[in-house]
Each structure stands twice: as C-alpha cells, then as structure tokens.
C-alpha cells in the first residue's frame, strides 16, 4: 500500500510540474510589451504565403485495417503477460496451451497478410 501512496504523491508532483512548465510564458508575457494588433502571426503555418489546401472536413486514415489487426494482437499480449509471469508454475500443459493460442492467432495474422491488410500502395 505504501508504494501506492508515494505514487500518488509523485502523481501530484508530476501534475504540478507538467502544468507549470509549459505555461510559464503566460506569466512572463505579463511583463513584456506584446504587439497584439498583428493578426497575421496567429494564422497556421504556411511558408509565408496565403494558405493552400487548409484542412477541413474528414480525412481518410489509410491504416484503419492495420488498427483492427493491432487491436487483435494487443488483446493477445494482454492475455499472455500473466502467462509469462507465472510461466514456471504452469508446467508443460500451460506452455502447450499458450503456444496453441499463439498458433491460432498466427494463422489469423497470415490470413490478414494474404488478404492484403498490410499493404500501403
């Protein structure tokens, strides 16, 4: 339990540091003379010319299928981490079962490759 108390204290310290460090400029700007009239500097970056193709609406994320395959394998790692810790206690049966599990998922992975889920052309 004690370690979680220190973790909580660490959490609070990290939170204060993290909120303080990036926002120092808000404090220092009070002592500076700042030109707020120049509107151009608030425009998003574009090499000093008027904006070309600004982002609007939707964007097609090409890695959507990859994300699905990732989700599958990430769940697999979640299941396998407890197995990895208690590897020595489980004995031969546990090992065989885990590798059967991995083999089934590898078949799924090969299927995804064969179907072209991991192509980026």
């Amino acid at each position: 339990m004690e370690s979680y108390l220190t973790l909580l204290v660490f959490f609070l310290i990290a939170l204060t540091v993290a909120l303080l460090v990036p926002n120092i400029n808000l404090i220092t700007n009070k002592f500076l003379k700042i030109d707020k009239a120049n509107r151009e500097k608030f425009e998003p970056y574009e090499c000093g010319i008027p904006k070309i193709n600004p982002i609007k609406g939707s964007y097609f994320a090409i890695f959507y299928v990859v994300a699905l395959v990732f989700l599958l394998f990430d769940l697999e790692t979640v299941f396998l981490f407890p197995w990895a810790v208690s590897f020595r206690k489980l004995g031969m049966l546990g090992i065989a079962e885990a590798f059967l599990f991995i083999t089934i998922l590898l078949v799924g992975f090969l299927y995804a490759i064969a179907k072209g889920a991991l192509k980026w052309d």
Binding site: F10, F11, I13, A14, L15, V17, A18, L19, V21, P22, N23, N25, L26, N29, L32, I34, K41, F42, E43, P44, Y45
Partner: peptide
C-alpha cells in the same frame, strides 16, 4: 510570446505539452 493559432482547439492545444511531460515523469 504565447501564441495560440487561429482556429485551434484551445483546450487540447494547451493540454498536449503538459501531457507529454506528465506521462514521461510518471
């Protein structure tokens, strides 16, 4: 100078660098 670009999501824009430091420290 503290600049927030026009049309930015102000809350997320300010929170993102804090999050970077926070996660790294944890």
């Amino acid at each position: 100078e503290d600049v927030v670009p026009k049309g930015a999501d102000k809350f997320l824009f300010i929170i993102a660098p804090s999050f970077s430091v926070f996660a790294a420290l944890l």
